[in-house]
Nucleic acid binder design. Structure first.
Lengths: 346, 346
DNA sequence: CTGTTAGCGCCTTCAT
DNA sequence: ATGAAGGCGCTAACAG
């Protein structure tokens, strides 16, 4: 250890233990073909020096980095945070760590983050693509030799497996539930219609309305945060055909809509019923309790990570990775009925 | 590129461009001392091959890993998720990435995660210590040459800088506010009294009660989740000295307490007032709106990260890191008065 | 300006 | 069972 404060190396240990570096290496990696006595000596030296293998050197030598890249719109968002936690658990089971970066749902930030991320040579990548149709993203991913799983949204044409939920079906089901209550003027309300999940939900809503012979009312101008909910809804409520029910398209829209309704003094569900996408902690505590379509958040993150490690292991032992690569896992959402849709109240 | 699918290396690029590896290296690192024409040639080769520097090799060569370790109790917790997001932003400004791992507030998991994390040789560490007094943690940290900043909680005896909030003072202030309302039987309610922040808040509560000549009522048996809030509160409310106000000690306790009160049919604030630690998104939407002590969450994460990078840069240019190392940043909490404490209602 | 070379720390043969 | 040596991809130092 010539330099001050430098971490001890294999040869430091070897010198202290009076053996060769090869022997120390063997000890570190399980100690096969090492005599008990030597093992003891070396181990003592390791402890005394506080030796830790240099990860970079191992990686350079050709090993895995034991890291998984996680690229999500935001880490502060409860949905993605829970996915991340679940994925992290799986990663740790595989002795791997998560390198996290954010896209803000913007293509430029996404490409940039991805570029930085890839420098670190993660063994695999968990990705929530900001858009479904970025050919440069697909090309970049295709050129890279590591497996990529997208979740929450697919990336068509990239050949990546995806973990999704049945947004279309559950939106249709949720809308049908509202229709079953007798509501005729059901507003489909939210923002970011360019996102896959939002588009699918709008499609499901549309289908259900169509099947019921009801005219669709769609407003996806709310934006990523729900700050404009109140003014937007005020207009809707004053129009000639004010909605008698609202289907909101995501977590923040649901909350924003409820807040706006409360602020505007609109009784829920008697004047306007509410049914929203994504469950949230206080949904049962608000009055009325909010009916929602609940996504299996933990399952999404966990499944995506499991799929990734399956490909990682499959790739190292066989070349039939094609079957795995075509996988598309669709998880089922659950309609959780509480009060805001009109159920339970007279 | 002999091996299939292997990433191109410097020498691959050099060969294709017909130059030496050194020249390619120069181009990659900014292109100083390279003729425009050579630069162009090399750059073209880089593009064509899709070359990316091998991070491991650079690190092995002695460079920074450009990663920051982030070790928090949970990443799904909104408080730590927001801290992480803020820290991540700062990290990206410094061209670094976040490696995230969780402790679950358990010492064994913490040591384990730390061990795995340190293998990756992060340039620095952002840590929320599970306990204030783990000598083995301090020892491990001291032996490692990288700067460590703790946040939310200090790690006395480790020499690490910390970013904290004034839990004691703000709890005292919050309690004083409740006392000012005229409440006499103020219950201090929550769980995990072994955590620094909780202990400090209890201390602040205690101080305020003492100053007012009121007998303290403290129950810290709630546990990490607030599942037992309802049964615990039922007992308190049926006792001879039922509380007329409650100070909750953290986010989940506040929410759990509110839910329990609602469930038990206890009117807030008329029968029991509520004031809680940590703001949350729906605090203004609940009825009554919840009064809280609001922590500057983003600032905590950001400041911790900034402190870390300051040390990182300081260390590389001078040895006067001691002054920096003694830093202890205390951020101010803010008492946000809404309705649940009794303000605004008649 | 550019090519060559010596390691960084580790693992993996290959001898012994 | 152990030691010695080569090379992973890169940067920095030196030679031209």
């Amino acid at each position: 250890m010539s330099k001050r404060h430098a971490q001890p190396t294999l040869s430091d240990v070897a010198r202290l233990a009076g053996v060769g570096v090869g022997t120390v290496s063997r000890v570190v990696n399980g100690g096969i073909n090492v005599s008990p006595e030597t093992f003891r000596k070396v181990d003592a030296a390791i402890q005394r020096l506080g030796y830790r293998p240099n990860h970079a050197a191992r990686v350079l030598k050709g090993g895995r980095t034991k890291t998984i890249g996680l690229l999500v719109p935001s880490i502060a968002d409860s949905f993605f945070a829970s996915c991340a936690e679940a994925a992290g658990r799986v990663a740790r089971l595989h002795d791997s760590l998560l390198i996290v970066s954010v896209t803000k749902n913007r293509h430029d930030a996404e490409m940039n983050s991805l570029d930085v991320l890839m420098r670190h040579r993660p063994d695999g990548l968990l990705l929530v693509p900001s858009s479904s149709s970025q050919t440069d993203l697909s090309r970049l991913l295709n050129r890279s030799p590591i497996p990529v799983i997208t979740f929450d949204r697919p990336l068509p044409g990239s050949g990546c497996s995806s973990v999704l939920t049945n947004s279309f079906e559950s939106a249709r089901e949720a809308t049908a539930h509202l229709i079953g209550h007798g509501y005729k003027r059901i507003l489909c309300f939210g923002g970011e219609p360019e996102l896959y999940t939002i588009a699918e939900r709008v499609r499901g809503y549309h289908k259900a309305m169509e099947e019921a012979g009801l005219p669709p009312m769609i407003d996806t101008s709310l934006g990523p945060d729900a700050s404009r909910a109140s003014s937007l809804l005020a207009v809707h409520l004053k129009s000639k055909r004010p909605p008698d029910a609202i289907l909101t398209l995501k977590n923040s829209s649901t909350i924003g809509t409820f807040q706006a309704l409360q602020e505007l003094g609109v009784p829920v569900p008697s004047r306007v019923a509410l049914l929203g996408f994504d469950d949230f902690e206080l949904a049962t505590t608000l009055r009325p309790a909010i009916s929602v379509v609940q996504q299996p958040i933990e399952d999404i993150g966990r499944t995506a990570a499991e799929l990734l490690f399956a490909q990682l292991e499959g790739a190292s032992r066989t070349k039939t990775s094609n079957r795995l690569k075509q996988n598309q896992v669709i998880l089922a959402n659950r309609l959780v009925i509480r009060r805001s849709c009109g159920c339970g109240s007279v």
